[in-house]
């Protein structure tokens, strides 16, 4: 008797929770958007009147470079990799442009910065793809190399002392009518390209395939070394572009400018539902993840807590969100 009532009671419950899980697994972006909305409401409750069109613009503007760097993490994590060199590459590319623009003009400086970024990515890709070095180690080593070389360049170039070009400042920090960040001009096409590339091209499918089951993908004839080499070049170029926006947003260029964004970029990708173990995730979730992190740090700073408490809360929230996410999606 009791068994019957038990099963009768538990069945609908089980169904709904399974439904929620299915929703989370198939459309992770919906609960993430709900969390984002909750955080926006929370911002308004804590500081009434703070949420406005201008506030939204500022949030988006701050989230865009983070979202691009988190995009590097997303595409590399799909193949069970990671790119810890994004900070060094982004700083380096912004710094290169700032030092070269005076002598060679903006276009040449940008092209040089992007080519150097691509070369760094190529070396990383050779290490990961051909020599099978663990991506964590390879990108860590490359970030040391890039940082050291950038420092050497800094000493060579210290006399010329050019600044961040005006165009970058407009692009990184400017807003139309105080609402729409101009950096969307860079970000929207980039995001569209990444999402299209991941979902609609053969190359994107290969990334998922390699991460999901490397042996099966090899047996079906995927040359994973080629895929990985191209992947890390793409990631490095994306990091280079993010570097332009970061140097424009902060109106400075230094060789360590973007270093603090590396770990948040990993966190944004994880919160956005990308599995660090490979094979699962998409860039849409990552963008929301970057927005969530930006709003969280804005809430934390508007609360007036000291830096210490902010860091503690920031870390705790990352664990909590990742844990909730794992619990819902893995325990079926």
């Amino acid at each position: 008797m009791s068994a019957v009532t038990n099963s009768a009671n538990s069945r609908p419950k089980w169904r709904t929770s399974a439904g929620v899980r299915l929703l989370f697994r198939e459309r992770p972006i919906i609960p993430l958007l709900a969390l984002l909305a909750l955080l926006v409401v929370l911002s308004e409750v804590i500081r009434p009147g703070i949420v406005s069109a201008n506030w939204a613009g500022v949030m988006i503007r701050a989230a865009i470079p983070l979202a691009i760097l988190a995009g590097c993490q997303t595409i590399t994590m799909l193949t069970a990799g990671i790119d810890l060199s994004v900070g060094a590459v982004a700083s380096m590319s912004g710094f290169l442009v700032a030092t070269l623009v005076g002598d060679y003009g903006l276009v040449v400086a940008v092209v040089i910065a992007l080519v150097v970024s691509a070369l760094v990515g190529l070396v990383t890709g050779v290490g990961v793809g051909i020599f099978r070095v663990h991506p964590l180690i390879m990108t860590l080593g490359m970030s040391l190399v890039v940082l050291g070389l950038a420092n050497v360049w800094q000493i060579q170039k210290v006399q010329t002392g050019a600044g961040v070009p005006e165009e970058f400042r407009t692009l990184g920090a400017g807003m139309y009518f105080d609402v729409v960040p101009i950096s969307l001009l860079v970000f929207l096409p980039l995001a569209a390209l990444i999402i299209f590339g991941l979902n609609r091209t053969g190359y994107g499918r290969l990334l998922y395939a390699i991460g999901d089951n490397p042996i099966a993908s090899r047996l079906s004839g995927v040359k994973s070394w080629q895929v990985l080499m191209i992947l890390y070049v793409i990631a490095a170029v994306l990091a280079g572009i993010a570097g332009f926006l970061i140097s424009g947003l902060n109106n400075t260029a230094s060789v360590t400018l973007a270093d603090t964004a590396v770990l948040p970029s990993v966190a944004a990708a994880v919160i956005g539902g990308t599995s660090i173990l490979g094979g699962r995730g998409n860039f849409g979730g990552t963008i929301i993840g970057a927005l969530i992190l930006t709003v969280i740090s804005s809430i934390l700073s508007s609360l007036g807590y000291p830096e210490a408490v902010r860091q503690i809360l920031y870390g705790s929230i990352i664990v909590f969100v990742a844990a909730a996410y794992t619990r819902i999606t893995l325990e079926a």
């Binding site: 990671i82 770990l263 990993v266 966190a267 994880v270 660090i276 173990l277 870390g315 705790s316 990352i318 664990v319 990742a322 844990a323 794992t326 619990r327 893995l330």
Partner: peptide, 11 residues
Amino acid sequence: TRVPDIVVTLA
């Protein structure tokens, strides 16, 4: 939490 080590210790 069963979250990967790298993510937990990162946080």
